[in-house]
Design a protein around this nucleic acid. Sequence first.
RNA 1: ACCCGAGUGGCGGAAUGGCAGACGCAGCGGACUCAAAAUCCGCCGGGGGGCGACCCCCGUGUGGGUUCGACUCCCACCUCGGGUACCA
Length: 829
Amino acid sequence: MTDRTAETAYDPQAVEAKWRARWAERRTNEPDLDRPAAPFYNLMMFPYPSAEGLHVGNMFAFTGADVYGRYQRLRGRTVFEPIGYDAFGIHSENYALRIGEHPGVVIPRNIANFRRQLERVGGMFDWRHTVDTTDPAYYKWTQWIFLELYKAGKAFKKKAAVNWCPNDKTVLANEQVEGGRCERCGALVEQRVLEQWFFRITDYAGRLLDNLDGLDWSDTTRTAQRNWIGRSDGAEVGFAVAGSTVRVYTTRPDTIFGATFLVLAPEHPLVDAITVPGQRAAVDAYRRTALATDVVSRRSGDRQKTGVPTGATAINPATGRPIPVWVADYVLMEYGTGAIMAVPGHDERDFEFATKYALPIVRVIAEGGSPRPAAFAAEPEATPSAAYTGGGRMVNSGEFDGLDVEAAKTRVTAWLESQGAGEGKTLYRLHDWCVSRQRYWGPPIPIIYCDHCGPQPVPERDLPVLLPPVEDFRPDDSGVSPLARHKEWYHVPCPACGREGRRETDVSDTFLDSAWYFLRYPSVGLDDRPFDPARTRRWLPVTSYIGGNEHAVLHLLYSRFIMMVLHELGHVEFEEPFTRFRAHGMIVKDGAKMSKTKGNIVVPDEYIAKWGADTFRTYLMFLGPLTDGGDFRDDGISGPRRFLDKLWSLVGEVAAAEGGASGPTASTAGRGGPPSAALTAKWHRAKMRATEGMEELRYNTSIAAVMELLNAVREEGCHHRALVEELVLLVAPVAPHFAEECWERLGHQGSVFDARWPAFDAALAVDDSLEVVVQVNGKTRSRITIDRSAAEPEVVAAALADPGVQRHLDGKAPKKTIYVPGRLVNLVV
RNA sequence: ACCCGAGUGGCGGAAUGGCAGACGCAGCGGACUCAAAAUCCGCCGGGGGGCGACCCCCGUGUGGGUUCGACUCCCACCUCGGGUACCA
């Protein structure tokens, strides 16, 4: 015996270190971006580089995407798999404030740690093409995109209500307000009206909605986007009030005969004009209170509704009757016209309000299919106990009585139009995207204000507008960004007239950074352009995008919007950036999302140190379908390790048997012969199942199929080389370093990822003889073995002859026989 | 409240109209060992019957339905997770 036959134990640390170095040295993961044979852009959502490092949930997500990329590569695609860092934003800034360091110091440190972890876990990342959103070489082009939108009229400034914490002296995002209080200091949050930059995403609402139908995305994600865009079909109707007209929006024009009062939002511009003198004091007081209330709690639906009458009267254009006009903050100025017609009989909110203030409630829809106006007409006199929001037929509605609700919507709208009282209108819930932040840690918005020329875009040659390295980046109570305190930076000549100008001091939203990073990846390093046209044409749209469903709405929607605008401006040829999107599940710990505040973060490093990255990857992917996620517990990790150990030994045995010229004995060599017919069938079945699992992101079933095959191979003692090589290929996506090492031990020179994913023959995946289940009245009573070629009559005859079946037939002949070829016979007696 | 998703052994899960519990973890029994670890072999949803090969009954959150046949499809409900939150 030579040394070659000696069993070497699997040492993951050594194997993984070796292949990490080998990949870097051989440039294994660096595809030719200019001449790709079959490009496959494998994208995963880039992380925010927190101080805690990547936790198990991140590893689960990245590994899941990486496995898919590696699988595609084995299928012969030229896979580009980049990664980067979403490093601007309030998260980083707040963390830096808390520990008293500058984000410019903290972030690079975190990034270094992230990169170490990402390399350690074995991602197939192309490190030539990494993106850091805080790098001026990147945000130069984020600013360029802002200006493209600005020049196209898609970026504009307007006043908007924001949450203001008087203690922290800062604007708070809606998520930072809890129960009307600042989540950090507990102070009561106020509403402040500030000038903000917005993007006109609402111009694209219809297209953003319609395009969803053609995308290969998870249904959950598409549904979330649809709900967010929130299309409503209805009508805008004018109500005459004190010499002017109040326009309201409704999705229920059919209920207009039941509109018993109008409600205006406190901010509505007509409130002053219509309020009668006697009510002015009450209305003014109410408006002041409403304006002071923070945005979040004002919008909370659980709150008791409040309001005041204006004393004015409107004319219901359908009934011609006068109805009172109220002001109440349950009506929002941002949606529709900021005024509603209240139909308490058929709207829960209006019902609640009408009940509280003793306003009239009139039913105009009768539940049920048949018109029963007479029966229903009596009811308005009684006190209704709730709003009726279901379908039915019109009552108390003049000429429309008896019509079905759906038909009435169209008919009433047409009638209003003919009367000049209103018109059909489609609205979207989607708001324009507020992109400005009165903060420090972001890309400065590249606008210069000039008293003579107005706002001027920073000329492209002057980009990037560098974020100045100010020491005191804490927000103050001025409501403007800390950048305003940096005088040398703030004062700048006007690019148009050269006279004194001032920089915009707001920075842009982090979501803008992440709305185009995938467009930058292929062109990283080309510093004179944001994205190279040729590269972009080759690589985009993204072939596969995998990420968390927490970004299902904002990030994906904003990215789609930005691409739509760039497309419209002729910068990119596509409109939709992500051909296929799948949301991975979330890994939780003890039922809760992993977070530092909950103290339940599981750090992957220790598991990788103990078990190796490949075992850890296999374990994570074996937990369940990628789309499911789950509760993290580490008690099963030894299973995947044992699996790899067994495959390792098998590879060693095969290599040893063939390797030493003097070594192998006749008996060892004989085991290298072809597998039995039964094992051959299992082999092909395993390949089939493994392939399906990869395609559907159900890697757990792929791994299970390979485990089963390995067990069968070991049981038979088979050392057939082709079979063992394919076992290695089948685990390669989940256990890449391991597979490389095995591939080399089997005598191959190059990377296992330059080999091909095993093909299967569906015809070979079936045994010559099959086991068919025999049921009597749907209950399994026996199993019979038949030849694969057996036809129905033979199988049924065999089933009837089976003693176990006869016992349950009680001598009766079956009334009906169902035969599912190759699977089952059901005898109904 | 509304929208989406999920409920299957002790645990992670498999089976998407055709043998429920694949694969793995944990557990139990055995082999090897002075011993332990590792490894290997066997058992492993519950109940009942048989010396035994085996056989019977129950079982996929609850209640109904469709079907020869339902974890799978339909209706209603319960529980958990996620998202949205007065959008007229």
